[in-house]
Structure formats: structure tokens, C-alpha cells
């Protein structure tokens, strides 16, 4: 990668030479791509560095990029974006970590205790495993315990899912898989010729 420009990137390169992948500024916000295995160390570093002091853990959010067609920072299917802020300086930084199916991200609960809930949410809705945040094995967080699948994955249909009864048996589907209204498509074009039967 090129020379680190921001103070955050320089601190990471100086202390954890193998952790930083890339550095970009989008719409005025700093995004740093971090190696998956080193995320907890990077968070600890940014938190304790006396010049930076990223002491406020805002949240972390998962994104499924499996249907993404544009350019990207990372190559893996999922991205988890950590949102940190320094209350003293007001600076904000977004750390990105990539993960593919079946790859686990180290938890950062020991660095920021508040990471427990958002990590569990990402696991529940996207199926990304957080190594070390294993207080509740096999347990769903926002979804019912007998729910099958991860709804925020792109292949999960919007509507059309079977009703799940207790003990894992499946009932009838609630409604048809959502399709665009006549004359409207999910790609944002109008005119009946563009209507796709399955949506996106």
C-alpha cells in the first residue's frame, strides 16, 4: 500500500506493521481496512494511543457484498465496519474488516465491552462468527431461537419464507417473494419491459 497519510494509519503502521491494508477518505470520513486477525489489537491501539484516544465505541455493522457490482475496498464477501470516535478531539474513524463464509472475526469485547451487542446482532442477521463472543452458543439474538438462516444476507428472500414452528418444523409460506409493482422495477427504472419477475 501507499504511504499512510492520516495519524491513525501512521500509528497502526508504526505499532502493528502487518495490520493495515488500505486507507481511503470517502465523503470526508476516514476508512481504514484492517487485517481480520488484527482488528482487536488495532482497536486496543487506537483506544490507548495518547495522541488519538478513540475511547468511544459507537457500533459495528455488517454488510453482505455478494451482489455488489461496483469497485470495493476489500475482496471478501462480508465487511464489518467498526465506528469509533474520540470524545476529546471529536475525530471519527471507520475500520473495515473483511470476512468470507465460515471465517471468524476476533471479538473486541475485551477492548470495548459495548461491542457485545452489535457483534451478536451482526452474527444473528448475517451469520458472521465472532471468535470469543461465545457466551451464548447456538442462541439467536434478535430473531426467534428456531429461526433458520440469516436474513440480511442478500440471497435471503424478502417474503416467501416458510413459517417456522417449534422444533424446527416448517409451515406454509407467508406470502410470495416480493416482486416489483407493475411498471416499476427494483433497479429503479420505470416501464413494464424492465420488470423482473423475481426482484433482486
Amino acid at each position: 500500500m501507499t504511504e499512510p497519510r492520516s495519524a491513525e494509519a501512521q500509528a497502526i503502521v508504526a505499532n502493528l506493521p502487518d495490520a493495515l491494508i488500505s486507507e481511503t477518505v470517502k465523503l470526508g470520513s476516514l476508512y481504514l481496512c484492517i487485517e481480520r486477525e488484527r482488528i482487536a489489537d488495532v482497536l486496543a491501539l487506537l483506544k490507548s494511543d495518547p495522541g488519538l484516544r478513540y475511547d468511544y465505541f459507537s457500533e459495528c455493522v455488517g454488510v453482505d457484498y455478494s451482489e455488489w457490482k461496483e469497485e470495493r475496498d476489500l475482496g471478501s464477501r462480508f465487511e464489518v465496519v467498526y465506528n469509533l470516535m474520540s470524545v476529546s478531539s471529536g475525530a471519527r474513524v471507520f475500520l473495515k474488516v473483511g470476512a468470507d463464509d465460515g471465517e471468524a472475526i476476533p471479538t473486541c469485547m475485551h477492548v470495548f465491552a459495548g461491542a457485545e451487542y452489535p457483534e451478536r446482532e451482526v452474527h444473528d442477521l448475517l451469520g458472521i462468527e465472532f471468535q470469543g463472543n461465545g457466551n451464548y452458543p447456538g442462541e439467536r439474538f434478535l430473531l426467534p431461537d428456531d429461526w433458520v438462516g440469516y436474513p440480511l444476507r442478500k440471497e435471503f428472500p424478502l417474503g416467501g419464507e416458510d413459517v417456522v414452528f417449534a422444533h424446527g418444523t416448517l409451515g406454509p409460506a407467508v406470502e410470495d417473494i416480493a416482486s416489483p409493482l407493475a411498471g416499476e422495477s427494483f433497479e429503479g427504472t420505470t416501464g413494464t419491459e424492465n420488470v423482473s419477475p423475481q426482484g433482486r
Binding site: 434478535l142 436474513p151 424478502l158 416480493a178
Partner: peptide, 14 residues
């Protein structure tokens, strides 16, 4: 928690 989960974030994608 989760008793009021309605999947708004999924819904928004369409």
C-alpha cells in the same frame, strides 16, 4: 430482546 424485530433493515433494501 428481539420481540419487536420486524426486519426493517432488510425491508429497506427493497
Amino acid at each position: 430482546i428481539g420481540y419487536l424485530h420486524t426486519g426493517m433493515e432488510k425491508e429497506a433494501e427493497s
